[in-house]
Design a protein around this nucleic acid. Structure first.
Length: 759
DNA sequence: CTCGGATAC
């Protein structure tokens, strides 16, 4: 661990003091303290050179390329204002010649990039080894240029995976432009709801989830010669899983070849490089360095008791003390953010007039798209944007114009407790890698500053990297995928990160009780169907049960609603009572039977309203997301297609979409809820005489979450979709059920506190 | 009698 020499200087705030450390340029690499010593001129260096790193096999390539700058604005604008189902259409207006002309112009820029000067060095290295680990900063250009280098050489197709849809689409659009084709011709993309590829497509940007889905159908990925896994350092569950599958596939597909015919390139930020290399039998590591402007870091002297207070004070002081440039603040959650924004909005007019006028804006995923759009707005002169954000601004949304970052050093994380079958939402310190990423947000356009609301000594106590998601999540679905691909020994599989014995056993048991696995642990016909459906295994079981109970259409609608995040908007505290009353009044059955039935009722009303403007008006009144319900309709269509595929095989008839063909009245609530019990029998609780609820599985205390329509009501028994533990155990998304149903659906269930048998 | 970080099919 290299503690580097510092040139400390102090900046004094009214009652907040920051201590300054040396500028931070590239991602910190604690194994290479030497790296940060000569970083001041990084961005000026364009030449290709070898550097003496700890590992002399690292090849350093300096280059500068901003062509992969995220373009979230376009996506958000489309999402906020347009009803178009297709976000990006094939642009048929331009002729091939016009496209080539445009590409020629872009090439003038591209060929000046240092990456082009080392193209001839990189390519042989990539061709030589079946697996290469390519290290480079996000936005350095590796994601756009490397795939194009390989495109002309490669016989078969190349897939570049991304964790996020927006990134996959934007990269493909940019690369198609550089290549000089319409999107979907030689260069295309494939994400959920949007497959913009043709039989001409050689280079495809694809989400990890989509490629895994392709794998379920073609386990050998036989149409690809190269898979490039981008953003591997983010360690999402799906990326981890994919990397594990690729390891097996490399052995299988290259077994009888003298020269490897199937290649994998793992693209990552520095910190996890060794781990990837080791995982692939010491695969060579290639180092590509990007351009970042220096970011000076400051730390606070004494830790703050109240993080919101500290944030607000820092914003005010920074606004008065620093030159123009917008400020990005990181707080852990929505509640903190709303509070901070409210305080800052209140005090803004009171602040000294010499300083710029602050314009605070919140940013988090649950925020309606129109409000998220505000971060791209252009302000008047002498105004300063203060964007107060969750982790969403760390990787998913790039805010332009940021010169200053204030980092609370905290984030919220959902941790799955497989022993208890519940999740907890915790506020925890971020990792060093995450702190660096946040700081880097100030150095995208020019030199910047990052103010950390914690002590420097606390920074050194942070873990190097964020714990891989797979270690703290429910992994039922990944285990089912493994079974689908014929992996028998789940515990001994070559996991990039083994989720652990207990977690795996719990998943196997869950899959067994859902009927996805048989006594010997092999996948059943039911399991084969479940793995195809684009929903969690529990919900897949519900869908298949609903088909048997002949209430499929209704259940598809509800499951589709459950698949859309932030469909119900949490009203502000003033409006809360009115909205709740309106929802109770609007949903006559939902007010009796709970949230699942309410979703169905709301969805039906949404689809009954003809005029888009009327729909929007109604959504606003009852605090539901208009865009969300539009998405429900897309998911509904997709699930219908898959269900008919499962029923009729390959010659199934594609379902004709009609948003009004499903309003079945009256609803058979009993059949609908019994279908759900098939997947959620362990998520049930019994009402006690003292008005509390106890879970059927182990008798633990559980309360109805305040966001539920049934909050405060007393029922004999309830079923819930999710069990979260915050200040106490909460059931989210609750339905009222009858005790007899429990015994009918799970006869082995004898009484209130008797565990559901595991065997 | 109160809360929800982010992502994917």
């Amino acid at each position: 661990m290299g503690r580097r020499q510092k040139q400390n200087k102090k900046i004094v705030f009214s009652d907040t003091e920051f201590e300054c450390a040396i500028p931070e340029v590239a991602p910190e690499n604690n194994e290479n303290p030497s790296q940060t010593q000569n970083t001041k001129n990084h961005h000026a260096s364009k030449s290709t050179k070898e550097t003496n790193r700890n590992n002399s096999s690292y090849k350093t390539v300096y280059f500068e390329d901003k062509s992969t700058e995220d373009n979230d604005e376009e996506y958000l604008r489309e999402n906020a204002e347009s009803d178009d189902e297709e976000i990006y259409q094939l642009d048929e207006r331009k002729t091939r010649n016009q496209l080539k002309e445009h590409a020629e112009k872009l090439y003038q820029i591209r060929k000046t990039l240092p990456v082009y000067k080392v193209k001839d060095e990189i390519i042989p290295q990539l061709l030589e080894s079946p697996v290469t680990i390519l290290i480079g900063e996000t936005g350095s250009g590796k994601s756009t240029q490397i795939p194009q280098f390989l495109m002309d050489i490669s016989k078969k197709n190349i897939a570049v995976t991304q964790p996020r849809r927006v990134a996959a689409m934007n990269l493909a659009i940019r690369v198609a432009e550089e290549y000089g084709c319409h999107i979907g011709e030689e260069v295309g993309y494939s994400v959920r709801f949007n497959n913009v590829t043709t039989n001409k497509t050689k280079l495809k940007y694809i989400t990890d989830g989509m490629l895994l889905r392709e794998m379920m159908i073609d386990p050998k990925l036989s149409k690809y010669s190269t898979i490039i896994v981008d953003e591997a350092h983010e360690r999402t569950i799906l990326t981890d899983l994919l990397i594990g599958f690729l390891k097996g596939l490399l052995i299988e597909r290259n077994a009888n070849a003298d020269k490897p015919t199937f290649k994998v390139i793992i693209m990552s930020a520095t910190l996890d490089a060794e781990k990837f290399s080791k995982f692939f039998d010491n695969a060579p590591i290639l180092f590509v360095e990007g351009k970042m402007f220096p970011v000076e870091r400051y730390y606070i002297d004494k830790p703050a008791d109240d993080i919101i207070d500290a944030m607000v004070k820092s914003v005010v002081q920074l606004n008065q003390g620093e030159q123009s440039g917008d400020i990005l603040c990181f707080l852990p959650g929505q509640e903190d953010i709303d509070k901070a924004v409210n305080i800052l909005t209140d005090i803004a007019p009171e602040l000294p007039k010499e300083a710029p006028m602050i314009v605070p804006m919140p940013l988090y995923a649950a925020l309606p798209p129109q409000q998220q759009m505000r971060i791209f707005a252009k302000l008047k002169p002498r105004q300063r944007k203060i964007i107060i954000s969750t982790n969403i601004a760390e990787t998913s949304v790039t805010v332009p114009g940021i010169k200053y970052v204030i980092d609370s050093g905290l984030r919220k994380v959902k941790v799955w407790r497989h022993q208890l079958g519940l999740s907890t939402l915790l506020t925890v310190p971020i990792s060093k890698a995450s702190a660096t990423q946040r700081a880097g947000r100030a150095g995208r356009e020019s030199a910047g500053k990052c103010f950390r609301l914690y002590k420097e000594s606390d920074y050194f106590k942070l873990t190097d990297t964020t714990e891989p998601e797979i270690l703290r999540s429910e992994i039922i679905s990944p285990v089912l995928m493994l079974k689908k691909l014929g992996v028998n020994d789940i515990l001994g599989w070559h996991w990039l990160e083994n989720p652990g014995h207990d977690s795996l056993i719990a998943s196997l048991q869950q899959l067994y009780s859902l009927g996805a696995l048989d006594n010997s642990g092999n996948i059943t016909d039911l399991g084969e169907k479940m793995v195809i459906l684009p929903v969690a295994p529990h919900l897949a079981a519900v869908l298949i049960q609903a088909q048997e109970l002949n209430t499929l259409n209704e259940v598809i609608d509800i499951v589709s609603c459950l698949s859309v995040d932030n469909l119900l908007i949490t009203p502000s505290s003033e409006k809360r009572d009115d909205i709740n009353a309106l929802r109770l009044e609007t949903c006559s059955l939902g007010s009796q039977f709970g949230d699942l039935i309410m979703l169905k009722e709301l969805f039906d009303i949404f689809n009954t309203i003809k005029e888009a403007n009327e729909k929007k008006k109604w959504c606003k009144e009852i605090a539901v997301s208009y865009k969300g319900f539009k998405n429900v309709n897309r998911i509904r269509k997709q699930i219908k297609d898959y269900m008919s595929l499962l029923e009729n095989g390959d010659d199934h008839v594609m379902y004709e979409d009609d948003e009004n063909d499903h309003i079945n009245s009256p609803l058979n609530v009993e059949l609908i809820l019994k279908s759900f019990l098939k997947g959620f029998i362990t998520n049930t609780a019994i009402g006690m005489p003292d008005r509390s609820y106890r879970t059927v599985t182990n008798g633990n205390l559980i309360s109805i979450h305040p966001s539920s329509l049934l909050f405060g009501s007393k029922k004999d028994a309830m079923m819930y979709i999710e069990f979260v533990y915050t200040v106490k155990g909460y059931a989210r998304n609750v339905s009222a059920i009858k005790l007899e149903w429990l015994q009918e659906v799970a006869p082995q269930l004898q009484g209130a506190k008797v565990s559901v048998s595991k065997s």
